[in-house]
């Protein structure tokens, strides 16, 4: 437990210094204002493993279509810090606002890395999602649905793999897309003066709508700091 806490702190502190690599996920659209154009986010949760993440988003107050641009960075827990990671850059835009009901869309480019004894993978992908929800000043609840596509992946196998598993394995860039997962779920939050406490949880399905990943759900507890 001590190990977990220390690692979480290191991750959060380390990446708080990189303003391009921070996190904002669950946004209360009712709480945006020109006085709070920056949003810093930290979270822990489950997304293809136990992860911790940080993020930063900047508000661009376009009249009817306010949008946040920014990025997020997350790493899974484990003994080796940052041998696996995921970085997302993109935008989240409100498209429709009708009373307290609002619809927003998110478009992000993804760069992610995976490493174990056998292989190092590096992938570029995309994450497209839509969220519809009910937003009040103090709280919000919404449903989101999205698709995470692994568009192109580079494989580099270890000597161990070539010596023990398959000596003729082909390294290099693989395309067309090597994977894709749909996800859908609920998200919500409670807002205080400058802070939102956010929650999200949902289900993940592979793109054939039948198979499931080994961890078929996601969940996240996070905090947004507006300034």
């Amino acid at each position: 437990m001590k190990k977990i806490a220390i690692k979480s702190i290191i991750i959060i502190v380390a990446f708080s210094f990189f303003k391009n690599e921070v996190y904002a996920q669950v946004i209360n659209w009712e709480n945006i204002s020109k006085q709070n154009m920056h949003l810093l986010h930290i979270d822990v949760g489950a997304e293809y493993g136990a992860i911790a993440g940080v993020g930063y988003h900047h508000l661009i107050p376009v009249k009817r279509f306010p949008l946040w641009i920014g990025g997020e960075f997350s790493v899974p827990f484990g003994n080796q810090l940052a041998d696996d990671f995921k970085m997302r850059l993109g935008t989240q835009i409100r498209i429709v606002a009708l009373n307290h009901f609002q619809f927003s869309a998110r478009v992000q480019g993804i760069a992610r890395r995976y490493h174990n004894q056998s292989v190092r993978l590096f992938n570029f992908g995309s994450d497209l999602a839509g969220t519809i929800g009910y937003y009040r000043k103090k709280w919000s609840i919404s449903v989101e649905s999205g698709f995470d596509k692994a568009i192109v992946t580079n494989f580099k196998h270890s000597e161990w793999y070539k010596k023990n598993i398959y000596d003729n394995v082909q390294d290099g860039w693989y395309e067309p897309a090597t994977g894709g997962n749909f996800y859908y779920g609920l998200q919500g939050g409670f807002s205080m003066k400058k802070i939102d406490i956010t929650l999200k949880a949902g289900k993940v399905l592979q793109q054939d709508f039948k198979s499931q990943p080994l961890l078929p759900f996601y969940g996240q507890v996070g905090a947004n700091f507006r300034f």
């Binding site: 190990k3 977990i4 293809y48 493993g49 136990a50 899974p76 827990f77 484990g78 003994n79 080796q80 696996d84 995921k86 992610r112 995976y114 174990n116 993978l121 992938n123 992908g125 995470d148 692994a150 992946t153 090597t178 994977g179 894709g180 997962n181 592979q206 793109q207 054939d208 039948k210 198979s211 990943p213 080994l214 961890l215």
Partner: peptide, 21 residues
């Protein structure tokens, strides 16, 4: 271990590669 490298190595790859039945 839930927080261990081995389990995350097993689950994290599912966002890189998916295969039908």
């Amino acid at each position: 271990k839930l927080w261990g490298e081995t389990l995350n190595d097993a689950t994290y790859i599912d966002q890189f590669m998916t295969g039908k039945e």
